[in-house]
């Protein structure tokens, strides 16, 4: 029966081939399903069922910052008790509570979420000692007389951190590394790889950070880098809540005291203090935040 309007399209339903087709489909479906089930039974790797549950609750980014091969490795270590939960900065609080229940360990401390920032903004503004024409990234370049930058702690911008970051949050332009605060999950991989140890963790709620970590005096910095901190101490003097102190020529911000007023940012003649979140809209209206309970030593 040609059901369709085109006379020549379609032919009478051949029930035989239809039956054969069904048989084949069912046969293959059955075969495949059975094989999968059998093999999954036969190849059942004896695993503690809790590992799977823990793994599901972890962030699942396989970033490796906890030192274990991906989240499954970390979950196994957690269940065996060889690892502690706080070495994974990714998992949010509720997940950490659930995991603690599964493992039957107490959940302690609610770590303040942090993000990473690069404590250098010199890059192309900082003089080069030599032109590096070699293979590879900052790590290999650092072996050659401490990298091509005149400033011994200057960022070379060759992207070791870019490779390390599993979230593609870091980009190198204008000669130095920039971390995108929205993407950064503070896994700490870039902190481990940066040969100059320039990348530091600041609380997520911080608004300003010091983008320089040279310990030379002002005169030397002037000769080497146009964007370096000359340790003039203006920021220390203008900060109303005394949150900034110059420790051997490097301003250190104590975020528990910082009231996000932004005065240090304006005062700094060399613009070394920069915004954490590059937002140009609500510059002025940073509201008051009552200092939180000091919980984790930075």
């Amino acid at each position: 029966m040609n059901l369709l309007l085109f006379a020549e399209i379609g032919r009478d339903i051949e029930w035989v081939t239809l039956g054969i087709a069904l048989a084949i489909m069912v046969g293959i479906g059955l075969l495949m399903a059975l094989c999968i089930i059998l093999i999954s039974r036969f190849c059942q790797v004896k695993e503690d069922p809790r590992i799977k549950e823990v793994e599901q609750r972890l962030a699942g980014a396989n970033c490796g910052a906890c030192g274990h091969p991906g989240c499954s490795g970390f979950a196994k270590a957690l269940v065996e008790g060889t690892a502690t939960l706080d070495s994974c900065g990714q998992t949010n609080k509720e997940a950490q509570i659930e995991i603690s229940n599964i493992l039957g360990i107490a959940y302690d401390g609610n770590a303040e979420p942090t993000i990473a920032v690069v404590a250098c903004s010199g890059g192309s503004q900082c003089e080069d000692k030599y032109a590096y024409q070699g293979y590879g990234t900052c790590v290999s370049q650092n072996m050659l007389a401490g990298g091509r930058k005149a400033c011994e702690v200057g960022c070379m911008g060759s992207g070791s951190c870019v490779d390390a970051c599993p979230y593609m949050a870091i980009e190198c332009f204008d000669g130095y590394a920039h971390i995108d605060p929205e993407l950064c999950r503070s896994c700490g991989l870039c902190i481990q790889t940066c040969p100059k140890r320039l990348i530091k963790r600041v609380p997520k709620s911080a608004t300003v950070y010091v983008a320089c970590s040279t310990e030379c005096r002002g005169k030397d910095v002037m000769s080497k880098c146009k964007a370096g901190c000359i340790a003039c101490g203006k920021c220390e003097r203008t900060c109303p809540s005394g949150a900034i102190h110059l420790v051997n020529n490097v301003p250190i911000i104590d975020y528990s005291k910082c009231t996000h007023c932004g005065k240090c940012l304006e005062a700094c003649p060399r613009h070394c203090i920069k915004h954490v979140h590059p937002v140009d809209t609500h510059e002025k209206t940073i509201t008051k935040v009552e200092p939180e309970k000091e919980s984790k030593a930075e």
Binding site: T17, I20, A21, I24, M25, I28, G29, M32, A33, C35, I36, I39, S40, F42, C43, V45
Partner: peptide, 29 residues
């Protein structure tokens, strides 16, 4: 059997299952 039109569905089913099996076998051995 004259059911050439089924080739897409049969191939894909076989491939997906084979890969899943291969994964399990590799994981075990």
């Amino acid at each position: 059997l004259g059911i050439k039109y089924l080739y897409i569905i049969v191939f894909i089913l076989v491939i997906a299952s084979l890969v899943q099996m291969l994964e399990m076998i590799l994981k075990k051995f």
